[in-house]
C-alpha cells in the first residue's frame, strides 16, 4: 500500500512538473527526435491543453452521470419498468458504435471543435454508467428494501436514503470506466480540432516526431492511471464501510 502510494505520488509530481515546465524535460525527449526537430511541443501551453482536456472529460462525465443515473432510476421504478428491456438493448447496441464514428457524425450537426467531442464523450460515457447504476439499484438486498418500506419510508425516501447510497460504489465503478474511456477518446477529439492533449500526439504523427507522440501519450496515460486509481480507492473505501470487498 505505502509503496504504491509513493509510486503514485512520484508519478503525480513528475506529471505536474512536466505540465508546468515542459521545457525542463528537453534532455529526456531530445534523443527521440531526428534532424534537430524540437523535442517538446510548444505550439500550445501544455498545462492549458491538459486543463482543457480534463475540463472536457469532466463536463461530459458529469452530464453522462446525471442522465444515466436518472434514466436508471426511472426504469427501476414501477412506472418506468416498461422501458427496462428497451433501455438494456439500446445500451448494449450503443456501446458498439466506434467513438471515432460518433465523433465524425456529430461534426455536421455541431461543427468542428469542442462541441462534437463533448457529444461523443457524453454519448460514450452514458452506457457504462447506466449499466452499473442499473446493476447497483437492482442488486439491493430484498430484506433491506423490505425493511425500508416496512419502517414507513416513502418511495422517494427509500431511493435517496437506502437504494442510491447502497448502489454508490457500483455507480462509481461505472463513472470510473467512463472517465478512463473519455480521457482516451478526448485525444481523438483533436482530429476534429478540439483543443486537447490529442493535439500534441497528432502534431507528432503529422511531423513524424516520436517525442511529441510519446509526451502526449504519457501525459494522458498518467492522468488516466492516476484518476483510475483515485476512483478505485474511493470505491474500496465505500465498499469496505459497507462490509463488502470490492
Amino acid at each position: 500500500m505505502s509503496a504504491g502510494l509513493v509510486v503514485r505520488a512520484i508519478a503525480l509530481a513528475i506529471l505536474l512538473a512536466f505540465l508546468v515546465a515542459p521545457e525542463a524535460f528537453t534532455p529526456v525527449f531530445a534523443p527521440l527526435t531526428e534532424r534537430g526537430a524540437p523535442a517538446i511541443y510548444t505550439q500550445a501551453d501544455m498545462l492549458a491543453l491538459a486543463m482543457n482536456h480534463l475540463g472536457l472529460v469532466a463536463a461530459a462525465v458529469v452530464a453522462a452521470t446525471i442522465v444515466s443515473v436518472g434514466l436508471a432510476i426511472v426504469v427501476t421504478r414501477p412506472f418506468g419498468a416498461e422501458f427496462l428491456p428497451l433501455s438494456r438493448s439500446i445500451a448494449n447496441i450503443g456501446q458498439t458504435f466506434p467513438p471515432i464514428a460518433v465523433l465524425a457524425l456529430a461534426v455536421p450537426a455541431l461543427g468542428f471543435g469542442a462541441a462534437p467531442t463533448f457529444v461523443a464523450l457524453f454519448l460514450y460515457g452514458l452506457l457504462p454508467i447506466f449499466e452499473n447504476a442499473l446493476t447497483g439499484l437492482t442488486n439491493v438486498q430484498p430484506a433491506v428494501r423490505e425493511a425500508a418500506t416496512g419502517m414507513g419510508m416513502t418511495q422517494r425516501q427509500r431511493l435517496v436514503q437506502v437504494e442510491l447510497p447502497l448502489a454508490l460504489p457500483v455507480i462509481l465503478a461505472g463513472i470510473r470506466l467512463s472517465t478512463v474511456i473519455a480521457l482516451a477518446t478526448a485525444t481523438i477529439g483533436s482530429t476534429v480540432a478540439a483543443s486537447t492533449l490529442g493535439e500534441v500526439i497528432i502534431a507528432g504523427l503529422l511531423t513524424n516526431n516520436v517525442a511529441y507522440i510519446l509526451q502526449g501519450g504519457l501525459v494522458v496515460g498518467a492522468l488516466a492511471v492516476l484518476i483510475y486509481d483515485a476512483f478505485l480507492w474511493l470505491e474500496r473505501a465505500l465498499a469496505r464501510r459497507m462490509g463488502r470487498t470490492a
Binding site: L183, T187, I188, G198, I201, I213, G216, G217, A224, V225
Partner: peptide
C-alpha cells in the same frame, strides 16, 4: 489507458 492514437504512433 494509453490513448489509441498515441499507442499507434
Amino acid at each position: 489507458t494509453i490513448p489509441s492514437i498515441a499507442l499507434f504512433g
